[in-house]
Amino acid sequence: MATAWRDTINRRYRQWVDWRLPASRHTRLNNRRLFVFPTRAGFAYIGLLVVLWLVATNYENNLVFAATALLGSLLVIAIFHTFLNLSGVTVEAGRSFPGFCGGHAEIEITLSQTSKRHRESISLAYASSDSVTVSLPGSERTSATLAVEATHRGWLDPGRVTIATVYPLGLIRAWTILDIKTSALVYPRPIRAEAQLQSVTAPGEDSRAAMPGREDFRSLDKYQRGEPLTHIAWKHFARERGLYTKHYSDPVDERVWLDWDAFPGLATEARLSALCEWLLRLQGERIEYGLRLPGVEITPAKGDSHRDRILKALALYDTPAVVRSQP
C-alpha cells in the first residue's frame, strides 16, 4: 500500500517535472526554471537567529535586536545572490563518451553566459554520478564532465541532471533538474570466456594484406591534406618534384572473426561480454578482426575507429531502437 502510494507520488512528481521543465539540449536558466529553498545549513542559521532573538528579548537588548535583524536580512539578501548565481546561465549538452557496462560513461555539459557576472561554485550531478563543481567567469563558457554509472548495455539515459548552487553563504540552494536530451553508449561488460576463434585466410589472398600503417614502405603518392607531416618525402620536395607522402603498411599476421557462434552455450549478454573481452584482447596485437553477429557482419580490419564500430555494434545488439537522439 505504502509503496503503491509512493509510486503514484513519484510518477506524479515526474510528470509534473516533465511538464514544468521540458527536455531540451539547450536551456537558459531563469526564474521559471530555478527552484530556491534553504539548505540544512540555512535552517541551522535560522535556528541561530531564533536563539539571538531570544537573547535580545530576554535581555531586552536593542543592539542584539539590531544584530539579529542584520543577520536576518543577510539571509534574505542571500536568496537574491544565490538565485542570481545560476540565473542567466545557459546549459547545453556536450559530447558523451562511452563506457563499459559496470564502469562509467561520461557526459559533458557546457555552461555559458553572456552577462559579465562571475559565477562561483556551481555543482552538477546526475543521480548516479559524483558531483562536479565548476565556476563560470563572466562572458565565458566552461564545461563539466560527469561520470555516470553504466548500468546496462546500449544507450544509457542518465536521467535529469541537477545543477545547483549554494554560493555565496550556503544558506540557500538554487537548483534545477534538467533533461538535456543526452545519452551515452554503454558497451558490454568484458568477461573472459574460452572460445575457438576462426582464423581466416581467404584463398588467393596474401595473409599480409595491405593495411595502412607505418612499418613497411609501400608506395609514394601525391600529398593529401591532413596526412602526417612526418610521412612527407622531404627529399622529393627539396628537389622541387612536388609534395609526396610515403605510404607504409603494417604487417598483419592473421585475420580473425569474432564470431557469435564461437561461444556455444552462452546466453546473449554473456556472449556479447565474451566477444567484447576478446576484442579488447586482440586490440593492440597484429591481428585484423571482424565481427559476426546474427544479422551483423563487419569485415576484418584494424584501428581505433574500426574497434569503436565493433564495440558500438556489440553495445546496440538486440536493443530497442535509439530512444534518444545521439549527438
Binding site: A69, L70, S73, L74, F80
Partner: peptide, 13 residues
C-alpha cells in the same frame, strides 16, 4: 551583501 541588507535590517528593527 551586508550593505544591501541594511535597509531591510532597519525595517525589521
Amino acid at each position: 551583501m551586508l550593505a544591501q541588507a541594511v535597509p531591510l535590517m532597519l525595517v525589521l528593527f
